[in-house]
Write a protein that binds this DNA or RNA. Structure first.
Lengths: 128, 128
DNA sequence: GTATGAATTGACTTTTACGTAAAAGTCATG
DNA sequence: CATGACTTTTACGTAAAAGTCAATTCATAC
């Protein structure tokens, strides 16, 4: 496990721009350390980027991703806050399950669409 | 099966605004018929709205949703076009599978986060 | 010791997906 | 027929998520 990554290493690995990484830093999603002014990304930062991009692919906004990421961090020491976090986790889980249903339905419909295309191709093969 | 729905009926059913439905029409995603100037939504339009919102929940853009919806419609009569559609379907399927992996990973991490919270709560229960 | 290439900040711009407001048409009901 | 609920078009506004560009800084290779 390497200690640090430069910003361009991460842009290449993840196919994103430096602007994007700086934006995520401004948004408080990551906090790379600095040597002088230069950002140094630790493996933990890299993992956060992974999680951010995963959230994006699932259609979550930056604000939602921030909320989700916050829940991965150390649980706080107060019971009320813990209950609140558990509540939010339940909520997100619900959203994700809805997304999963949406996903399966869409996959089904794509299967049907493909079958229709294949049949149509067969017809053409027969008719020509 | 009702023949027509008014615009507000659909806004209420789906929790979206009239502006949104008109926007989708402008974008060519739906094409309700008209009685005079008033839009009349058929069951097929309603189903399209369903598919649009499903696509949105999965994080697809309007352009992508348009592409997906187009594939559900009647397959064309030319072999080349059919091959192209099948290619696009494969591509979308790939994206959806990626989303599914993302989804499962996120659900796993949420489970872990919740467990951490529950443990922390147990500690507090013991210590107080 | 200066040229070169990577990194930084800050400002402005762009795209997407609607929101919102204005002004007017439609239509059932009292 | 007028009132209110609903609808239409047109047009400008806006928030989110970056893209783009300019001006610098900084280290280092030659």
């Amino acid at each position: 496990m390497r200690e640090y990554y430069t910003i361009t290493e991460l842009t290449r690995e993840f196919g994103i721009s430096t602007r994007t990484l700086r934006f995520y830093e401004d948004e408080g999603l990551i906090a790379p350390v600095r040597r002088g002014r230069t950002r140094l990304f630790r493996p933990s930062d890299r993992h956060l980027v992974r999680q951010i991009l995963r959230g994006k692919r699932l259609g979550f906004s930056i604000a939602e991703i921030r909320e989700i990421i916050k829940m991965y961090s150390e649980p706080p020491g107060e019971a009320g806050q813990l209950q609140a976090i558990i509540g939010t986790i339940e909520e997100k889980r619900g959203e994700l399950r809805q997304k999963r249903r949406d996903l399966e339905e869409t996959l089904d419909e794509l299967d049907q669409a493909e079958e229709a295309c294949v049949e149509r191709l067969a017809e053409l093969g027969v008719n020509t």
